[in-house]
Write a protein that binds this DNA or RNA. Structure first.
Lengths: 239, 239
DNA sequence: GTCTAGTAAATGTCTGACATTTAGACAAGG
DNA sequence: CCTTGTCTAAATGTCAGACATTTACTAGAC
């Protein structure tokens, strides 16, 4: 794979890193492939070697690449990617052609983890956590009816789930909230946005909110599982 | 906080990064504190500015620091740390005075997550996963009796739990295995290494292995919870 | 054939200079 | 008094070039 298919870029090393990372995430290179050399990348995008090195440092830190002096840069296999790195979440967000394998893996993770997290949230939530959840939920309600607000709706959706993770009051679970954005944003491109679909989703989210508010851990677990069943349908994982 | 309390270092930027990161993890600086300037660090450790910048880049990527041109480098609060970054796990491993707040947070996470993971493992494990688990378990058995093999025993312990996460056959859960090493290594410094303690731990691990081998998800969940109850005692979280 | 030296090519490092951003001091003008 | 603008110092960010180190490959010597 060459660089020719990639669009030009403007801006610093961050933009360049995003560009290259998204190309990798979209599968433009296969694991084990050799990645272009620093000088070639710099020549192609007309940036200094420093910028290239900074960008490649990010990709290496995220586990996407492996660099060895003398040999060059190689693409690592998907199992080595640091899916929990916030930078990865940022790169995955907004990527239309995210690898279906990744979408399924993240969904499967959420399906097993989020009920537990919701249960913890029901036990640990403070007043401010409830407020965050309510605020996100009312935002979802307001943006559910109009089609053009679907991006905004997704943001409130992310905020709702992120608030759930934060309400668990555990530093580790909280970090995992980063994964929510790419997972939920993938819904925009794959779901039909039918009104009854969104209504159903809203109802299920309301059950989670109610369960956490009433500090009922078991109910929260069940409700979170129901939300994710709905999500699976919208993601096209089950029919 | 100054740099004076830190030991000298040998080796490249990685060693320097580890040194500074461990100082941060041990709480030598408070959130919001200004971190020493690049030139001061370089002068103190007698390394080039390049090395310093490379080290600081790692710490920034891990969410430990925030750097702004003109202002300087500031220490971020613990909630912003990327606890799931493999580099963080590496830095935490072997740190004797790991912040008790972190130890508890990681333990609480494992207590809520690992039963689920063990359940998944019971459903998804392949032959090679079982082999890994058995190999790690027999290693734990062999090293349980002698006191001087406790470090080796801890390695097998890590391998056992890591094999459990891998057996879930989920890319995200698998990434989380990195957290196990610091958590389990903390046991070495805090537990008494009494023989009956290790025997009890071994028995509980065996139950997890048996449950996964017989593909009994519920039993695996319960057994994993029992292992972690034992861990909590050894970590001094409960008495 | 096998070992060895040599060479090319890639990433890693150093250095010095310069650019950019920020915070603060200070003075002019309303 | 307060605001505004400008200047300066200090910190991180960027660049360019030379050099160091590692790696893979090749060509000979024996």
């Amino acid at each position: 794979m060459t660089l020719d298919a990639l669009p030009p870029h403007r801006g610093g090393a961050e933009q360049l890193a995003r560009l290259l990372a998204q190309a990798l995430l979209a599968g433009h290179w296969q694991p084990g492939d050799v990645f272009p050399r620093e000088l070639d990348i710099g020549a192609h995008f007309d940036v200094s070697r420093n910028q290239v090195r900074n960008a490649l440092t990010s990709l290496t830190a995220a586990g996407l690449l492996e660099r060895t002096a003398g040999r060059g840069t190689m693409v690592r296999e998907i199992g080595d990617w640091h899916l929990l790195d916030p930078l990865m979440s940022e790169w995955m967000t907004g990527l239309v052609n995210l690898d279906p394998q990744l979408v399924r893996a993240i969904y499967a993770f959420r399906y097993s983890a989020e009920p537990v997290v919701a249960g913890l949230a029901a036990q640990e939530a403070q007043a401010e956590d409830i407020e965050r959840l309510e605020s996100a939920f009312t935002g979802m309600e307001k943006t559910a009816s109009s089609v053009e607000a679907r991006a905004e709706h997704a943001e409130y959706d992310v905020a709702f789930h992120d608030a759930t993770y934060r309400a668990s009051h555990n530093l580790v679970w909280r970090q995992m909230g980063h994964l929510l954005r790419p997972s939920i944003m993938a819904l925009i491109h794959r779901s039909q946005d039918r009104t009854d679909t969104l209504d159903d989703s809203l109802t299920r989210h309301r059950h989670v909110l109610d369960a956490i508010r009433s500090r009922n851990a078991n109910a929260a677990e069940t409700a979170a599982r129901e939300v994710l069943r709905r999500t699976a349908i919208d993601l096209g994982i089950v029919s």
